[in-house]
Amino acid sequence: MTDRDCERLRAVAEELALGILPGHERAEAIAHMDRCPACREHVERLTLVGDGLLALLPGSEPPAGFETRVTDVLGLNRSARRWQPRAVVSVTAAAVIALGFGFGGWAVRTAVEGPAAPPSRSAGATGSEHGLLEASLLAPDHHPVGRIFAYPGSPGWVYMSVDLGHDGPGSGSRGGDGYPGAGKVSCRLERTDGTSLRVGTFSLDDSGRGHWGAPARVAPDTVSGATLLAADGSVLATAHFDVPRNQ
């Protein structure tokens, strides 16, 4: 890699970022970017300009029935799903497997901790749009550091966003001890019977921020909350689902 290579890249960076660079030039430019982080960053920033241009286009409603046609094509229409459970299950399984590698490189690992307890399944909790659980993630000092969503449908899933704010505004209020450094953290679902279920591990960036989602079985009758754990097992944050019991 030479300065001349970088100069040649910079001469076509705008066209590359907008996706209009002809094939052979594009191939050369991409090969250079693979070796040159500075040029890669330059082009990525120009790509944001292209994104910004698209954001100027006004929205427009598609023809009536569009959403139904899309879900039909995806095999996700509710009525179609009732008639083709096997097909949907296989598609879902593939999607779930794929999802496992999607959100920032997290790894799904399920491990039951505490007293053995079979997962409680509530027929009324599956496939319901009304069963979405939501709670704030609170640090030990009760400062909100994120949110968690848990969906008890079939299949269910868990999603959380975390911002521990290592270097953000207000981080000083948490004192000099702060939180453990960035790295692997785990999400653990807590059950009302005292058992817990670790549903996944993911990474936070240097600022203590991250998003994560994973397929997970969520039984609304027995799940009480969630805990965000550091790699050493210490508690970073907890969330409590305010779930009406014995419905």
């Binding site: 996700l76 794929a98 999802l99 939501e134 409590h240 305010d242």
Partner: peptide, 29 residues
Amino acid sequence: MRRLGLPLGRVPDEALLAGMATGDPEIAL
């Protein structure tokens, strides 16, 4: 902190995408 009846309109975009990928018709819609 609450449960039940959370409008899907309040769910973050990334969470909706994750939910759709699991094959849930309501989330996909």
